[in-house]
Design a protein around this nucleic acid. Structure first.
Lengths: 303, 303
DNA sequence: TTATTGCGATAAGATTATCTGATGAATGTC
DNA sequence: GACATTCATCAGATAATCTTATCGCAATAA
């Protein structure tokens, strides 16, 4: 037989009380049960822990040394249970979030702030890359959740919609005031897009009804910032999500135009493995992200 | 239910293998048994430790933190067993020895040296006092063993004889060469004795057949050294154990006389509680003490 | 000495925990 | 779509653990 925590607990009680009957009572078991477990513990160790005198039960000198260590172990175990109890409700430990590049720069600062305000000890790990990579890492367990454009339609993932955001047209500053081009007109303009792989590229193309065959000549940028810079240089026009307007047009002379119906837009949401035990916490995070986005939008509206 | 070490061991195995079947095999149990124990552990903690994917079993982030602590705990427990195993054969930990004052100064240096040579880590605690106090402390568990004059005849104690030692007569230096007094003559001399309570006092008186009523006028000293000093000052004569000769007459001008038959002597032995779990080690110690005494006697014989 | 009391050990039977083997359900593979 | 893999579940068997009753020993009291 092996030693057990139960034996440790009984041992601790007996060491404290120095009396089998009272120690047993303290453990809510019968005296023989305690006697047996102590005997088994001693047998397992090959050493006596107590000296049973006629009038008293005393720890042997080894027993005393043993007691110190046992106490430590029992404390560690109890502590472990406490930690677990705390972890189940609150958001603790490590949280690995992936975000697509057309959201990350605009939403993350707010999200991080809100998360850290919720739990400063949170070990937040962030990853910014395109949706397919995020999904792979999610599947491999290297991410806990990802903020992407919906739908993903992956049966192994839970999808939670967060918000919808429209796209706006970014034109050179001198186009300010000109009529907003229709989708058809847009197709004839030089539309600057992100590199392949970015979902926002597909969403933009989709709006122009040119999803399948890319039109005329396109120029790919690696970030929305780059695209906007190119627009301001008069190279063409581009689309960016509403959320990006404030940041990307702050220091750049371009014209922002909003489309009439049908407005282009996309749905942003959070996804995680259906098997993830963090589900409860992730729902909490989703709510927080949703709130962060609303706050952000309200701030922009005031500008 | 409470968490158990068994669950911790299973958990560790599963964390390592990431596969219920293989982990179960590693633990020499069936896969359902492992599944159940893991489930129970998770239930006890109120948190999931593993994320069961279709193709793999992964630790949750909490599980990883948990695993670190569990590993520590299991190591501590295993270490505990090792310590116990080492303790049962070897003499380790604390050893509390009581010695009567008419032996301690002469025998202890050798004993301590030999004990520490056997185990340098030994926590040796020594107590020098008269037999009744030693026996009390022994009974109260404040000593592990005592070196005293036998017999003690206390049924709760184990007695182990170590050696016999004779007594010699210490006379002023000018008595050197004079005939050794008989016991009867001795009774008429001024015999210097230790204070009451010292067993050696009784043993000396017993030799003079004056056990019951102390004779003429006695002068009590608190140590053999004092007695010998008093003898050298011409105040009287005294008896000391052979073992004390070398030390006590080294720097003092006195005459040492050995009695003819019947030679006075006493038996020195070790005692410990019959219930003491150190019995095995104490027998070992007794053998060491016996050997120390023999060595000491041999050294004296060479002087 | 001879009862009596206190306390731990032991024994037998009941209860609970844990395990095994068979099977099910979900997912992924050919 | 049949098959394989893998974890969960179930029922029954086995083993660990507990309880109650009793014993034996030692200390105290009569």
């Amino acid at each position: 037989m092996n030693v057990t925590l139960k034996q440790f607990r009984y041992f601790e009680s007996l060491a404290q009380h120095g009396h089998f009957g009272r120690a047993a009572e303290n453990c809510a078991i019968s005296q023989p049960a305690l006697s047996m477990q102590i005997k088994e513990l001693e047998a397992a160790l090959g050493t006596e822990l107590f000296e049973r005198g006629a009038r008293q039960v005393r720890l042997t000198s080894f027993g005393e040394a043993f007691a110190l260590r046992v106490r430590d172990i029992l404390r560690s175990v109890d502590e472990l249970a406490d930690i677990a109890r705390a972890a189940q409700t609150q958001l603790v430990g490590r949280l690995r979030i992936g975000v697509i590049p057309t959201i990350a720069p605009y939403l993350l600062p707010t999200i991080i702030g809100n998360l850290m305000r919720l739990n400063a000890d949170l070990d937040l790990q962030l990853r910014e890359t395109i949706t397919p990579k995020l999904l792979t890492e999610l599947a491999e367990g290297r991410l806990d959740t990802a903020i992407v454009a919906l739908p993903i339609s992956e049966p192994s993932l839970t999808e939670v919609p967060l918000f919808s955001e429209g796209f706006v047209l970014i034109r050179p500053a001198e186009d300010e005031g000109k009529p907003v081009p229709s989708r058809e007109r847009l197709r004839e303009m030089r539309l600057l897009l992100l590199e392949e792989g970015h979902c926002f590229r597909d969403q933009a193309l989709s709006f122009c009804n040119t999803s399948a065959a890319p039109p005329r000549e396109l120029l790919d940028g690696s970030s929305l910032s780059t695209l906007v810079q190119m627009v301001s240089a008069g190279i063409g026009v581009t689309l960016i999500p509403e959320m990006a307007i404030a940041v990307e047009t702050r220091a750049t002379a371009v014209s922002v135009a909003r489309f009439g119906d049908p407005k282009p837009q996309r749905s942003v949401g959070m996804v995680w493995r259906k098997t993830s035990p963090l589900a409860k916490q992730l729902l909490q995070v989703a709510e927080l992200v949703r709130h962060s986005a609303l706050t952000l939008r309200a701030q922009h509206a005031m500008l």
